[in-house]
Deep mutational scan, measured.
Amino acid sequence: GTEDLKEEAKKALKKGDKERAKRALKKAGLSEDQIKKFIKEVL
């Protein structure tokens, strides 16, 4: 589900894998702006 994808994105970001995080967030249905915001909040 969406929460799982967001968790996956957080883990990817902590490993420095932004591309993987972006893919997971796109799958979760987030827009580009939401993805940028999510990444900023996590990092």
Rank of each mutant, 00 (worst) to 15 (best):
Lys11Trp: 04
Lys11His: 10
Ala12Lys: 02
Glu41Phe: 06
Ala9Asn: 00
Ile35His: 01
Glu32Cys: 08
Val42Ser: 07
Lys10Gln: 06
Lys37Asn: 15
Arg23Trp: 05
Thr2Lys: 10
Lys11Cys: 12
Ala9Val: 08
Lys27Arg: 11
Thr2Trp: 14
Lys18Ile: 15
Lys26Tyr: 06
Gly1Trp: 13
Ala9Phe: 04
Ala12Leu: 12
Val42Tyr: 15
Ala24Pro: 00
Leu13Phe: 03
Gly16Tyr: 04
Glu41Gly: 09
Glu41Cys: 10
Asp4His: 12
Ala28Arg: 01
Lys40Gly: 11
Arg23Lys: 12
Lys27Ser: 10
Glu19Phe: 04
Arg23His: 08
Gly16Gln: 03
Lys27Met: 12
Glu19Cys: 07
Leu5Cys: 06
Glu32Met: 07
Lys11Asn: 12
Leu25Val: 00
Ile35Phe: 01
Ile35Cys: 04
Ile39Phe: 12
Phe38Met: 06
Ala21Arg: 00
Ile35Pro: 00
Ala28Val: 04
Glu19Met: 07
Leu30Lys: 00
Lys22Gln: 11
Arg20Trp: 12
Leu25Thr: 00
Thr2Asp: 12
Lys6Leu: 15
Arg20His: 11
Phe38Glu: 04
Lys6Glu: 09
Lys14Val: 10
Arg23Leu: 07
Ala21Cys: 07
Lys14Glu: 12
Leu13His: 02
Ala21Asp: 00
Leu25His: 00
Ala12Gly: 02
Glu7Met: 10
Lys15Leu: 14
Ala9Gly: 02
Gly29Val: 00
Gly29Met: 03
Glu7Phe: 07
Ile35Tyr: 02
Glu8Thr: 08
Leu13Val: 05
Lys36Trp: 06
Arg20Pro: 02
Lys27Tyr: 04
Asp17Pro: 01
Gly16Trp: 03
Glu7Ser: 08
Glu3Phe: 05
Ala21His: 01
Gln34Lys: 04
Arg23Gln: 14
Lys6Gln: 09
Gln34Cys: 05
Ala21Leu: 05
Glu19Gly: 07
Ala24Ile: 15
Ala24Trp: 08
Glu3Cys: 09
Arg23Tyr: 04
Asp33Trp: 05
Gly1Ile: 13
Phe38Asp: 02
Ala21Glu: 00
Ile39His: 01
Ser31Asn: 11
Ala21Asn: 00
Val42Ala: 11
Gly29Ser: 02
Asp4Trp: 14
Lys10Ser: 06
Arg23Val: 13
Glu19Val: 08
Ile35Ala: 04
Lys36Asn: 14
Arg23Asn: 10
Glu7Thr: 08
Gly29Asn: 04
Leu5Val: 05
Lys11Arg: 13
Ala21Trp: 03
Gly16Lys: 03
Asp33Val: 08
Lys37Tyr: 06
Leu13Trp: 05
Asp17Thr: 01
Gln34Ser: 05
Ala12Thr: 02
Lys26Leu: 10
Leu30Glu: 01
Phe38Asn: 03
Lys26Gly: 07
Ala21Val: 04
Lys14His: 11
Lys26Ile: 14
Lys15Asp: 15
Ala28Gly: 03
Glu32Pro: 11
Val42Gln: 09
Ala9Leu: 05
Arg23Ser: 12
Asp33Gln: 09
Ala28Gln: 03
Arg23Thr: 11
Gly1Ser: 14
Ser31Asp: 12
Lys14Phe: 10
Ala24Met: 15
Lys15His: 12
Ser31Met: 03
Ala24Phe: 14
Asp17Leu: 07
Leu43Pro: 02
Lys36Ser: 09
Gly29Ala: 02
Ala28Ser: 05
Arg23Phe: 04
Leu30Phe: 13
Arg23Gly: 08
Ala9Glu: 00
Gln34Glu: 15
Lys22Asn: 08
Lys18Thr: 15
Lys15Phe: 09
Lys14Leu: 15
Ala24Thr: 08
Lys15Glu: 15
Ile35Gly: 00
Leu43Trp: 09
Lys18Cys: 14
Leu13Arg: 01
Phe38Trp: 08
Leu43Thr: 06
Gln34Leu: 06
Val42Arg: 02
Arg20Ile: 08
Glu19Asn: 08
Asp17Tyr: 06
Thr2Ser: 11
Lys40Glu: 15
Gly1His: 12
Ala21Ser: 02
Thr2Tyr: 12
Glu3Ile: 11
Phe38Lys: 03
Leu13Asn: 01
Ile39Gln: 02
Glu3Leu: 10
Lys40Trp: 15
Asp4Lys: 13
Leu5Met: 07
Glu8Met: 10
Lys10Ile: 14
Lys22Cys: 11
Leu25Glu: 00
Glu19Ile: 08
Gly29His: 02
Lys27His: 06
Asp33Gly: 07
Lys22Thr: 12
Ser31Val: 02
Lys27Trp: 04
Gly16Met: 05
Glu32Thr: 07
Ile35Ser: 02
Lys40His: 15
Thr2Glu: 12
